[in-house]
Amino acid sequence: MGKVAIFNPVQQAGNVSSKVVAALERLSEAFRVLLWNEGKQHGLSPIQVQLLIFLLHYPPAKRTITFLASYFNMTKATISDAIKSLESKQLLVRKAMSGDSRSHTLHLVKEGKTLARKIEKFADPIRESVTLLPGGKQEELLECLLSLIYHLNQQLVITPQTMCLNCRFYTQKDGGHYCNLVKAALQSGDLRVDCPEFQLPTNNE
């Protein structure tokens, strides 16, 4: 038998992994619709919405064109164009990095912060749907999603995410999750999608 066509409804019906992929595609469409609708209300593109939200919450070291391009899996040129548009809307400014006047960090101005706080609620309908799941199911879903992201990272489909499963401090111990930084076991609900203490494994690890 040949390979199952993921988006063929007949073949999909008898293949659980294909149905999971199809379901994830529907979820990605939900995010896309919510982003577009939010952006249209404020004259922003979807990536501009995401950039404003990112710049609101992340430290200066990560607020650079290079980091943003890697984080959002886009080219520097695409991110740079989006940033220029946000500059023209007077929502952010660039500040030269100390010791290197050619490199800049990005900073939201007051109007940019106000707008970012407003638009970051675009994903609330999805979060509300997640909260309808029993607590144990939410943790199970988180663990499964992080595992999927990890394998996509390993296949170089997307850049390595700063989550527990990719971190040098993470290991599996006694059949569970363990963080060598805090020297403690982690429950599924403790796993982080984006950790401030994240470090990539060294070549020796």
Rank of each mutant, 00 (worst) to 15 (best):
K3A: 09
K3P: 00
P9Y: 05
V10C: 11
Q11I: 01
Q12G: 05
Q12A: 10
G14Q: 08
N15F: 05
K19F: 06
V20W: 03
V20L: 11
V20R: 06
V21S: 02
A23N: 12
R26V: 13
R26E: 15
L27H: 09
S28G: 12
A30T: 15
A30Q: 14
L34W: 01
E38Y: 02
E38P: 03
G39P: 04
Q41I: 10
Q41E: 15
H42S: 04
V49W: 00
Q50P: 07
L51S: 02
L51N: 01
F54V: 03
P59C: 03
P59E: 06
P60Q: 13
P60T: 10
I65Q: 05
T66N: 08
F67S: 01
L68T: 04
Y71E: 08
Y71Q: 06
Y71C: 08
F72I: 04
N73Q: 10
K76I: 07
K76W: 03
K76E: 11
I79A: 00
I79R: 00
A82M: 03
S85W: 02
L86H: 05
S88Q: 10
Q90V: 09
L91W: 01
L92F: 03
R94V: 06
R94W: 09
K95L: 15
A96I: 01
A96H: 00
S98Y: 08
S98W: 09
S98H: 12
S101M: 09
R102C: 02
S103Q: 12
H104G: 03
L106Y: 02
H107G: 01
H107N: 13
L108M: 09
E111M: 14
L115C: 02
A116H: 03
A116E: 04
R117D: 07
R117K: 11
I119E: 00
E120R: 11
F122V: 00
F122Y: 14
D124V: 07
P125H: 06
P125G: 05
R127V: 13
T131N: 14
L132M: 13
L133R: 01
E139N: 10
E140F: 06
E140S: 07
L142W: 06
C144I: 14
L146N: 04
L148G: 02
I149F: 09
I149E: 12
I149H: 06
Y150T: 07
Y150W: 15
Y150V: 04
L152H: 05
L152S: 07
N153P: 04
Q154V: 12
Q154K: 13
Q155P: 02
L156H: 15
V157E: 09
I158R: 10
I158V: 12
T159S: 15
Q161G: 06
C164L: 05
R168Q: 15
R168T: 10
T171F: 05
Q172E: 14
D174Y: 07
G176M: 06
Y178W: 10
Y178E: 00
N180T: 15
N180Y: 04
N180Q: 15
N180F: 06
A184L: 08
A185Q: 11
L186T: 01
Q187K: 13
Q187N: 14
G189S: 13
D190C: 07
L191F: 15
V193W: 13
P196H: 04
P196S: 01
E197D: 15
P201Y: 04
N203H: 11
N203R: 14
N203K: 14
N204A: 15
N204R: 15
N204V: 12
